[in-house]
Design a protein around this nucleic acid. Sequence first.
DNA 1: CGCTTGATTAGACGTCTGCCAAAATAGGCG
DNA 2: CGCCTATTTTGGCAGACGTCTAATCAAGCG
Lengths: 110, 110
Amino acid sequence: MPLVSEPLNAGQAERLAPSFKALGDPVRLRLLSLIASHAGGEVCVCDLTDAFDLTAPTISHHLKVLKETGLVTAERRGTWVYYRARAEALGLLSAVLAVPQPAVLQESNA
Amino acid sequence: MPLVSEPLNAGQAERLAPSFKALGDPVRLRLLSLIASHAGGEVCVCDLTDAFDLTAPTISHHLKVLKETGLVTAERRGTWVYYRARAEALGLLSAVLAVPQPAVLQESNA
DNA sequence: CGCTTGATTAGACGTCTGCCAAAATAGGCG
DNA sequence: CGCCTATTTTGGCAGACGTCTAATCAAGCG
């Protein structure tokens, strides 16, 4: 399963790449982190908007990208929309990048 | 350190995003996997080029992106250039995405 | 040397991305 | 209902991205 164990085939790469792409923007990375690390597991969009110097539509756009790749879910309750991280998705990506031996012990080649 | 433990600040996000962005393309993902999973730890560019329906310059471009983000290193030996994955970099990204509890056991909220 | 093979760089082209302002949708409340 | 706040959708624009062809750089060899 990890990327270092055996070569990803085209299909696997095609399926994984969009998730990494979603993480490839600083704003989305922070959004995901804000959501994933929040006590209670969910965050209201209004709280996220305040954390950036960006307009609400822009934040909404980034959240949509995260949602479409399955990294977060959204639920409307009354006036507000709450976002929640999907630990399953994060764990999968983490596993794909995981290296068998501790990275620090990388062998030296002559 | 992991993304779920506490919110990434702007600087951390700015530093991590380019790496994830580099992984956000299927071709680069496969390239990295081919390099990282190869016996001996290194792969000649000529072998990589053959694995795709893309021109050599395009492969070279993607390898450059991977190299610039520190995910791989390149070394020329004679006629050929060999690429090698940086386990340290992979491990770091994996750690950032890691979730404390197994993803499967995600708690259910009422 | 001059050629050949391996790899990268330069330049061009269409597409995608991130941002914003403006408009639309959703729900609550007087 | 009509309005107000929260959020998303639409449309437009500048810049970035992935790909190619053509040209250039590197190294080995006759």
